[in-house]
Every structure is written in structure tokens, then in C-alpha cells.
Design a protein around this nucleic acid. Structure first.
Length: 863
DNA sequence: AGCACGCCGACT
DNA sequence: GTCGGCGTGCTC
């Protein structure tokens, strides 16, 4: 999209405006007349007539005379102004970049940035006219199907939505409805949009104080003692109070207040009440803590970056328990003091209530706001508009908060930078909050601090100046600061300072990690999923009345296949990835119906061997034991033990996390048994023991990032142990103790591990050295997707662009929610990104109507 | 996304 | 001859 599309000058009341309409398929701007009495600014959200209905739109450009003259058709007028002052120029630039990079239509991208439902237009609701005489005339097939569906829903007063009808009946809906409408059999009404609205409350404001003079001479004042009481109560409240609160406080009534208002002593004002979420729990106040030398040095660097009006990235590599949060807090304090705001991005707010609480405790509730998808629509809407005021504040939020509209942004912090939940995969665009944050730091000329105990390969690569050599010195802060000579802009973008916090607060040691070779257990006749070492450790933990965590990597059905005797893992012969086990289900024309192993990169398939190819043992099988099984077996071994299971089954509703963790923290259980969720920012000082049932499920994943992710997960899990006064202990069970990931975890040699990892990726041109985009196709019809995938691949090959096409291949979990999924992988160098087809182009290349297409630029996994 | 228009086959 | 299916294209 050309830049000239957008102009952000505040013009004097123009007569026409060009808008981007909320209608798939219309990417060009449409021109509308601005009616008298409506002042439209660029960036405003509007409602405009389009065809027969009204749609949301964004004002982007005031056309000049030529542009107006160029359009000869009818020009309609804007229907209404929905919201004003939402989009600034820089902000718009960020959205444009996101849309372009992730190859997604602009309007679709705008919608992920703005609070939800803001452009909703309401919907038509249809019901049977109760006055229509009973005998139903003969109807066409379409009309009859609509009628029958309506008859099923006669109990709903408002009728059923057009959208629902369309969903149930498909194409005949329109003609059927028209027919019924003409016969006068149905009633149609427009349901007002469920758009979030500002909430207003009445406030009582003191205009004239009941001063001493009046108190002395009550005759003259015309005030009753009760009225004076009320006014005094209001004065105590600082001269202002919300009506509902004040009525309770002063034990008075509305009529009494109205009397006072009539006499001019008080005013009853309608004013907006902001619904701001995440502030229900009480937190005590907190003061800045003494920093360790490492922390102080890191803080110094961040503060220096804050001073410089240029984009900078700082990678804060701090081991678990090294006090990264304290560094963030002290970096933010001067930002707030200077009247600017800070944005703090966290992976999942539900899992890190402690972090939010610390910000609230340090800066106070009025300065800290949260923004995430668990807020209600009203709360999101209000939080959003509150940010636009420009008040200095800290916004703590998840992925979508990267689009928080803070006008005076001074610093962006991304905590747990490596975490996968920063990447969006559900609706397009599949953006990565880290990437968007990097652009934002450039556009705003402000620093971006990325913190992690296990930095991503991407960030380590950048911090290393895009070289594959070691980063810095052991245990020392080093940096790859840009040189004094101005670098070309592309290089400035990528320059990253590396800051390390290699020691835990109070110099507590990292917990020692013991690796148990499960093959030896097998040889010793122990067929249980628990090694003798692990069992002993749990027994010891119980005896000492300490607490522990058991980590299970449980993933649905498709797992890896390995030999229980020699540890051999089945690998693809064309790619360096392990093969996934597939159940013998015939799902598509080209898939075999026997148990087989498949590579998800190249679609190479082979039958599942009955014996191990290296040692001929028959004990070659697929693995995977879930939390429930582990919980059950632990209960058998230790009848006394008190356990809490912590996985997506037990934490379905939103407060469950906090509840279970609070129970555990209160010592109501000895052992926490859970999945991935345990890795995220969980800080429970009493935990001394951490056990990993099987690291193999993490290691042998057929994905190029499997090693990196396994390393990060294991280090994060291990980091839960020994944060308190007592020393920690970590036990990792595996069938492949010699695996480089296990070696690296055991020795905490992240640097060396990542170096090898990066050089392997370099050899195959995988990210972060090369780039990838994954095209997803899905349909309820298995044949249709497969055909569409092949067609699309053919069409893309004909493009003859600078990319490598892999596939099409069925997705590893072929069927999800009754949809069959295929995918095409594109590998390319970053220069080629802008030549990638956009989502709209991809869709136009697929004719199967049932097939949905999506594109994921920089996919986190290619499974 | 909706709703036009317009082009073909199965019927009064 | 006409009704009604659905493919194609436009919406300021």
C-alpha cells in the first residue's frame, strides 16, 4: 500500500473523505461525502452505507479536487461517526507494516489492533410474523427451508439472526427470505450493534462549601442541619464523589441531593466511568530493592538507552531468579517520572498474576493498567481509550497489547521474550508481538528490552551481530553496541545489546540437574515410568516436608517412536527430523491405511517397523504418558502424598490457575503434577524438587525448533527449584541422555548449545538465518483440501520467485475440529518477503469453496 | 459479505 | 416460452 494513501494533517472541514471499508474484497479506498455537522478527522472510525447495508470504515485520506472529479458515480454520505481520535500517524504506520509483512488485508489487521467489536454494525433479526394467518401457502424450496428453521425458533422473542440462518442453510437463505418478506410472513428488524459504549455515572460535585459563616447563622443560610451534614460529608470526600457511593456514605437520598443542587450548592454531573480490569486483588505497596552489581549494570545500560532518542534493542539474559523484574521496575520509574509511558508485554497474564501485582504494588493502581483478551469488551474499550489520553502509565499486557495506543511511549519491555504465545496463530494476521515491538521501537525511536532466562535463537543471533560465534564472556556483561560510525539503517534496526544476569539473587546456586538414563532402569528390571532415583527423591522430599513439581510433556496422540532397548529414534531419511507416529486411519486418498511413520517436512512415509532397525529389539514403540497416568501411579507409590494436577484439563476456567497455585503455595499439597504451564514465571520459593518424567517427548519432535524449545522448557522447569532458602534438586528422566539438549541442560551450557543449533540452522537455511512462510489449507472435505493444496503448489511453482517450495504435505494433526489440513512451506531469504503472495492472492488461486486458506509468515512450528 | 445481473437447464 | 438454479462482479 503506497504511503500517499494516508495523510494525517488536520485539514479544515473538507467535504469528502476516502475511507477503508470493513468489507472483505475491497482494498481500495471509497469516497464519501461528509454531512454538515460531522467533523471527520483522519483515523476516525465511521459507519458508512455500502450497497444495501452499513459497514464500519476508517477515514484515511481527504481527496483533492481531481480525485473527487475522477469518480463519476453516486457519492453517498457518511452515516455516523463511531469513534474519533483512535489512530495516530505512527500508529497507522505500525498497522500498515504489520499488514504488509504478514500478507494480510489491512482491515483484518486493523481489527486485531483495535479493541474488539468496535466496528460492529449490528445484525438483522428475523422472526415469523405472529399475525400471519395459519395456513402456509406453497413455497419454493428455499423459502420452505427458511420457514422451517424459523419455526424451530419461535420461542426466541427477538428472532434469529440472519447470520445464523446463513450459516445453517447456506445459499438459499437470501432468496428464501426475500420470498417470505414479500408474502408478509416474517418480520425483520435491525438489532443495534453490540459495540462497546462508554459507561457514564453521576458524580456529585461540591460548588459551595458550607462555611463557618453559614454554620453560625443558620437562619440566613437557608440550609437545614441535615443539608449541612451532607455538604460536610462531601467536603470530606474532597468535594467530589460518585453518586452511588455517596448515597451510601452520607445515608441520603437523591431528592435531598437534588434539593441542594437546586440551591446551587452542588452539581450532579454525568461523567464517564472507566471500566479498567485487573485491579480487583488488593496488593500492598512495594519499594525499590537494592540491586546486585549485575542488575545495576543492566539497569545502567537500559537507562542510557532510554536517554538516547533512537531505536535500540537490549536482550536481558537473566537466569531464573536473577531479578529481571526488579530491573524492569527500576527502568520504568524514570519513564513515568518524565511523564511518559511504558509498555510491558508478558506471555499470558493468567499465568503471571504475580508480575502484574508487582507493578501495581510499585507504581500504584492508578498508574498501572492491564490489557489482555480476558478483559470484557467494555474493559478493553475503556482501557484503550484511557491510554489515548496520554497520561503517563504502565500498560501490562499480552500479545495484543503491542498495539496499545500510548501516545508518549518511552520504553517497551517484553518479558519471557522466547515464549511462543507472543505469536498469534488463530485469526490472521499471524503476527509475532516481538517483531511488531521491534518495529514499534523503530517508529517511536525508543528502546525495546527483551528479557528471558532462555533467549530465543532469533534474539541471540541478533545480539551476536548476525554471526555464529560465541556471545560475550562467561558470567560477564558484554555488548555488541553499535559503533560510533553510523550504521546503515537496516543495521541499526538489528543492533542488539546483550546484557547478562548470570547469578541468582543472594547468590543462590542454580539447582544441580541429574539425568537418569531410563535404558539402565529397563536393564535393571524397572519397567515403571519412575526411575529409582526419582522415587527416592520424592520420598526424601516428603520426609523433609518440602514441595516439588513433576513435569510431564503430554501431547495428544502423535508422538515419536523409539526403541526401549537401545534408545534409537526413527528418523526421516531426507530430513534431520524424527518421524511422527500415525495411527492406522485412512484419511485421504494418498495415505496408507497401516501404522506408519511420517516426516512432516517432506511427507516421506514408511511403515512402522516391528523391530528396531539397529538392535532388532521388538521393544520399539511410540511413547507418551499423560498427567493423569502419572498422578495415578504416584498415588499408588506414595499413598500419603497430596497432589495437585495442573494442566489444561484442571485449569479450564480463568481463576483456576491462581486458585490451584495459591493452594500449592499455602502448602496444601506436596506435589504439583503438570504440563507446559508450569514453566511460565511460576515463583514458589518452597519448591526444592523438580522432576521431569520424560524429556524424550520434548526432544524428538519433528520440527526444526524442537531442540531450542526443549532446551528452553527444561531450563525453565529446572529454574522452578531452589528459589527459596533451601537448595534445589532437579531430576530429568530420558532414554537419550547423550542428546545434545540434555547435555546442555545438565551443564547449563546454553551458549554452546545455541551456537551449534544456529550453525545447524544455517546449514539448512532455517530461521533465524533464512525465513519461512507456511500456507495452511483446511476443509471438512479431505479430497478437496488435498486437491486444493496440489493446485496451489502448482500455481506457486509457476511464479518462479526466489523461494523454495516444500510440500504440499498433510499437517501432522491432519484432522482438527473436523477439518482436514494440508500445508505448503515456503523457504526464502528475507529480501524475498515482499514478493510472497498475499493472503488474498492465495485465496484467489484456490477454487474449492470449502477450503480455507491462511498464511503464517515466520511460523513458530511447521508441524 | 450481500445483492444484483445474467446465463443455462427443467418445467407449465 | 418461463421459472429458478447458481456463477460473476460490484459496492463510493
Amino acid at each position: 500500500m503506497p504511503d500517499e494513501f494516508v495523510e494525517f494533517q488536520a485539514d479544515c472541514t473538507p467535504a469528502f473523505v476516502q475511507v477503508l471499508v470493513d468489507c472483505p474484497g475491497i482494498e481500495e479506498l471509497l469516497t464519501y461525502r461528509i454531512p454538515e455537522g460531522i467533523a471527520v478527522q483522519i483515523g476516525d472510525i465511521l459507519s458508512v452505507p455500502l450497497g444495501t447495508r452499513h459497514v464500519g470504515a476508517i477515514a484515511l485520506h481527504f481527496p483533492n479536487q481531481n480525485q473527487i472529479a475522477a469518480f463519476t458515480g453516486e457519492v453517498k454520505a457518511i452515516a455516523s461517526l463511531i469513534s474519533t481520535g483512535m489512530l495516530s500517524a505512527k500508529y497507522w504506520e505500525l498497522v500498515l507494516r504489520t499488514a504488509d509483512y504478514y500478507r494480510t488485508a489491512l482491515m483484518q489487521t486493523v481489527k486485531v489492533a483495535l479493541p474488539p467489536k468496535i466496528m460492529d454494525q449490528g445484525c438483522y433479526r428475523i422472526k415469523i410474523d405472529p399475525e400471519y394467518p395459519n395456513p402456509v401457502p406453497s413455497l419454493s424450496k428455499a423459502a420452505r427451508s427458511v420457514w422451517e428453521l424459523l419455526e424451530k425458533h419461535t420461542q426466541s422473542k427477538k428472532g434469529i439472526s440472519r447470520r445464523y440462518l446463513q450459516q445453517q442453510l447456506g445459499k438459499p437463505t437470501s432468496s428464501g427470505l426475500r420470498e417470505l418478506q414479500q408474502l408478509g410472513m416474517i418480520l425483520t428488524q435491525l438489532d443495534p450493534p453490540q459495540r462497546p459504549q462508554p459507561k457514564f455515572v453521576d458524580a456529585i460535585v461540591l460548588l459551595q462549601a458550607p462555611d463557618a459563616q453559614f454554620l453560625d447563622a443558620q437562619v440566613e443560610s437557608k440550609l437545614t442541619p441535615r443539608q449541612i451534614e451532607i455538604l460536610t460529608a462531601l467536603q470530606r470526600e474532597g468535594g467530589e464523589s460518585l453518586k452511588t457511593e455517596f448515597l451510601k456514605l452520607a445515608k441520603t437520598t437523591i431528592s435531598a441531593l437534588q434539593n441542594l443542587a437546586a440551591k446551587g450548592y452542588i452539581a450532579i454531573d454525568r461523567r464517564e466511568y472507566l471500566r479498567l480490569g485487573g485491579k480487583s486483588h488488593f496488593v500492598s505497596t512495594d519499594r525499590p530493592k537494592q540491586l546486585t552489581p549485575d542488575q545495576a549494570l543492566a539497569l545502567e545500560r537500559i537507562l542510557a538507552a532510554v536517554q538516547a532518542p533512537k531505536p535500540q534493542q537490549l536482550l536481558l539474559h537473566g537466569v531464573t531468579g536473577s531479578g529481571k523484574t526488579e530491573v524492569y521496575l527500576q527502568a520504568i520509574a524514570p519513564i513515568l517520572a518524565s511523564g511518559r509511558s511504558a509498555l510491558v508485554l508478558v506471555p499470558e497474564i493468567g499465568l503471571t498474576p504475580q508480575l502484574t501485582d508487582r507493578f501495581r504494588a510499585r507504581f500504584g493502581d492508578t498508574k498501572v493498567n492491564v490489557y489482555h483478551s480476558q478483559l470484557s469488551d467494555g474493559e478493553r474499550f475503556d482501557t484503550w481509550r484511557q491510554m489515548l489520553t496520554g497520561d503517563a502509565q504502565v500498560v501490562v499486557g499480552t500479545r495484543s497489547a503491542v498495539f496499545a495506543p500510548l501516545p508518549k511511549l518511552g520504553l517497551i519491555i517484553m518479558d519471557e521474550e522466547h515464549d511462543g504465545s507472543f505469536k498469534q496463530d488463530q485469526p490472521q494476521p499471524c503476527y509475532h508481538a516481538r517483531t511488531v515491538a521491534q518495529w514499534r521501537s523503530q517508529l517511536e525511536q525508543i528502546p525495546l528490552v527483551l528479557g528471558s532466562a532462555t533467549p530465543s535463537a532469533e534474539m541471540l543471533y541478533l545480539a551476536n551481530g548476525k554471526k555464529l560465534i560465541a556471545i560475550g564472556e562467561d558470567s560477564e556483561i558484554s555488548s555488541c553496541e553499535p559503533t560510533v560510525i553510523p550504521l546503515p539503517s537496516a543495521e541499526i534496526e538489528n543492533s542488539v545489546q546483550y546484557l547478562a544476569l548470570p547469578h541468582r539473587i543472594g547468590n543462590k546456586p542454580m539447582p544441580p540437574i541429574a539425568v537418569v538414563d531410563m535404558r539402565e532402569e529397563l536393564q535393571a528390571g524397572n519397567w515403571s515410568i519412575f526411575s529409582r532415583t526419582l522415587r527416592a527423591a520424592i520420598a526424601r522430599m516428603l520426609e523433609q516436608k518440602k514441595q516439588g513439581i513433576l513435569f510431564i510433556h503430554r501431547r495428544g496422540h502423535s508422538t515419536f517412536v523409539s526403541c526401549r532397548s537401545c534408545g534409537y529414534v526413527m528418523k526421516c531419511r531426507h530430513c534431520d527430523v524424527s518421524l511422527a507416529y500415525h495411527n492406522p486411519i485412512a484419511v485421504s486418498a494418498s495415505t496408507p491405511t497401516i501404522s506408519h511413520l511420517r516426516c512432516h517436512y517432506c511427507n516421506y512415509t514408511e511403515a512402522k517397523p516391528s523391530r528396531c532397525p539397529t538392535c532388532s529389539s521388538p521393544y520399539i514403540k511410540h511413547f507418551g504418558s499423560g498427567t493423569q497416568k502419572v498422578e495415578q501411579e504416584i498415588a499408588e507409590l506414595f499413598p500419603e502424598i497430596r497432589m495437585i494436577r495442573f494442566d489444561s484439563d484442571t485449569t479450564r476456567n480463568k481463576d483456576q490457575h491462581r486458585l490451584l497455585l495459591d493452594q500449592f503455595r499455602a502448602g496444601e499439597a506436596d506435589l504439583l503434577v503438570g504440563t507446559q504451564m508450569l514453566t511460565k514465571g511460576l515463583d514458589i520459593p518452597q519448591v526444592t524438587f523438580v522432576g521431569v518424567i520424560s524429556a524424550d517427548g520434548l526432544l524428538n519432535f519433528s520440527d526444526f525448533r524442537a531442540g531450542e524449545r526443549a532446551f528452553q522448557t527444561l531450563i525453565q522447569v529446572a529454574g522452578r527449584a531452589g528459589r527459596g532458602d533451601d537448595a534445589g534438586e532437579v531430576i530429568i528422566q530420558t532414554y537419550t541422555p547423550e542428546h545434545p539438549v540434555i547435555e546442555a541442560v545438565r551443564n547449563y551450557t546454553s551458549k554452546e548449545f545455541m551456537q551449534v543449533e544456529l550453525s545447524q540452522r544455517a546449514a539448512l537455511n532455517y530461521p533465524p538465518l533464512g525465513q519461512m512462510a507456511l500456507i495452511h489449507l483446511s476443509s471438512p472435505d479431505p479430497i478437496a483440501v488435498e486437491t486444493a493444496a496440489n493446485q496451489l503448489a502448482q500455481a506457486l511453482l509457476a511464479f518462479e520467485m526466489d523461494w523454495e517450495l516444500l510440500g504440499p504435505a498433510p499437517a501432522s494433526i491432519l484432522k482438527v475440529a473436523n477439518r482436514f489440513r494440508w500445508q505448503i512451506l515456503l523457504k526464502f531469504q528475507s529480501e524475498a518477503l515482499s514478493s510472497l503472495p498475499t493472503l488474498d492472492i492465495l485465496r484467489s488461486l484456490v477454487d474449492q469453496k470449502s477450503v480455507r486458506v491462511a498464511i503464517d509468515v515466520d511460523p513458530l512450528t511447521i508441524l
